[in-house]
């Protein structure tokens, strides 16, 4: 099932999103669609897109960006 999530580029860090796509590659196919950070995820899990958004926030914290 394909799910899309739009992450606001004023609040989410692009490098963290790219890293998250890489980290999710075993669970989901993800790609960055445009500069508004629309991420498309293909996975059988229902809430994968929400988990993805949480994961990006966690990465931003760990990387000291936010």
């Amino acid at each position: 099932m394909e799910r899309k999530i739009v992450l606001n580029n004023k609040l989410y860090h692009k490098e963290s999103i790219l890293q998250a796509i890489d980290d999710f590659k075993s669970e989901a196919k993800g790609k960055l669609l445009d500069d508004t950070f629309t991420v498309s995820l293909t996975s059988p899990h229902d809430n994968i897109h929400m988990e993805f958004a949480n994961y990006v926030l966690g990465l931003m914290k760990n990387n000291g960006i936010a």
Binding site: I5, N8, K10, L11, Y12, N47, M50, E51, A53, N54, L57, G58, M60, K61, A66
Partner: peptide, 24 residues
Amino acid sequence: PIETVYSAAYVFLDSLYILLDGDP
């Protein structure tokens, strides 16, 4: 400020799905 919003959001990462939007 946005830094405060991020800090508050991190507290709930385990129990809630959090999605930020708008303009800082």
